[in-house]
Design a binder for these strands. Sequence first.
RNA 1: UGUCCUAUGGUGUAACGGUAGCACAUCUGACUCUGGAUCAGCUUGUCUAGGUUCGAAUCCUGGUAGGACAACCA
Length: 560
Amino acid sequence: MAETNDAADKKVLNFLEEIIENDLANGTHKSILTRFPPEPNGYLHIGHAKSICLNFGLAKKYGGKTNLRFDDTNPVKEDTEYVDSIMEDVRWLGFEWASVHYASDYFDQLYEWAKVLIKKGLAYVDDQSLEEIRKNRGTVTVPGTDSPYRNRSVEENLDLFERMKNGEFPDGSKVLRAKIDMAHPNMQFRDPIMYRILHAEHHRTGNKWNIYPMYDYAHGQSDSIENITHSICTLEFDIHRPLYDWFIQQLGIFPSHQYEFARLNINYTVMSKRKLLQLVKEGHVSGWDDPRMPTICGFRRRGYTPEAIRNFCERIGVAKRDNIIDYSLLEFSLREHLNMIAPRMMAVLNPVKVVITNYPEGQVEMLTAINNPEDESAGTRQVPFSRELYIERDDFMENPPKKYFRLAPGQEVRLRYAYFITCQEVIKDADGNITEIHCTYDPATRGGDAPDGRKVKGTIHWVSAQHAIGAEVRLFDRLFKVPAPDDVEEGHSFLENLNPDSLKVLTDCKLEPALADVKPMDRMQFERLGYFCMDKDSTPEHLVFNRTCTLKDSWAKING
RNA sequence: UGUCCUAUGGUGUAACGGUAGCACAUCUGACUCUGGAUCAGCUUGUCUAGGUUCGAAUCCUGGUAGGACAACCA
């Protein structure tokens, strides 16, 4: 018995949790402090969400804290616009940081430490040009060669470095380099650049600095200053870790440690900031928050919930091997949550008129509909029914295949929460398009059940024509038509893989009147169609809804 | 041809020398006033060759495959 419980309680830990539990157990750390360190040069995407959930989630799980730190060491690319959006997105995801920091807060300290390294003979000012430095770095298989300025005296280095700071030299004329080993097999150790001259205005420090630290020199020391215990980043920094440790060790400061995990990839999408920026700049999407974008703000506008994204990040796991997650896992997490919380409504996207020929003209009755079968507390609502209705064009077929359960000549179906109707006649225009479907209803089936116990195979949704409100509905599909949009032949662009049908705008949709009351960002299910939310473009005069995702549709599968 | 990382069903992820499990996807079936949801079930896997061991997905060696590193980006 106890054994079964142990087995059931046995925690499945990922490798980061194991490291943390070990550190806590053996006293390496009393508590943990993580950090989320975005560069404020773009909008956060779902890949960042993984990192956010990891850093904040791990700290939360083990009773620690998380700092938000903007890695703002490159003033030419960064902007406060991004700082604001990043904070908004992190909060929307449901996380709160212990404190906000900026790498730029540490510029003075970093400068002092650079002088320490110079004095220890571990850093020097190099006058080589960008091209020379590049050339002399060698290649992965060929050792680099020492700079002719490599053996300047400490005094000269100190003097030059201070004058760099004071702005005496033009951009690109000098850099400060760590003096390590130009023949090192790890390229990161071939005298990495610590500072470059940049006469650029910084979004926080203004014009105070003429030199700015590079990532490798700034990041580890920033972690150390904040006493970060576990500095969690993606795999591509793995090769930087020895250098991360080197700076900390030479400076003799708090030993933060870096751990790397594999970044998130999802099929049918791209995740690089550069490509996302290109999609926005070239107008392939309407902006960073286009509902087809894998950005946090894109998902938000699309109607995703923070819970869904968090659950997704939980489910994908953490490891060090490259991975490509099925888009369907994201949608599963989404539907799982939306199914629980989204009120059900009826909306007809592609309307065709139905006339109930034996229903009294001018009569209107209110029928009771359940708001959410998964949540009794959501209650019920009244939906008006009348002689003329709209139903989905797809819910009628003149010559249906065998397993078609919906409306067809002579076939009886249930109108959701209303009556059974039977199709008697199809009215067409001169071109053969169906304009009206004439049906009869069975008054005894009011509410949707037949007293005689007879069953119908199909139930379809509907909207009373005279009560319907019009709306625009935007149907989104995957932005790319192939699983690996990045995977293109030489000379081709990922843009060629864009799905031309990723957005379909429907302008003649008919909604049940209750939808007039919803507000932008409100989420709901349109029965049988999918989950939707009101878009921010929506106005009382012109309602706009986004389709967040479809319902699972086993008919579509059968039908091909 | 250097250094480092990684390799478990279709996709992810567990198993920490002792029965290869879970989730998504797929397929079956049940149920259903959403062809939704729910429930039940099936199929599919340890890259390869050696070695250590009573026993290897796990440890060791070689191979193979994939990825990262040669910005004054992060």
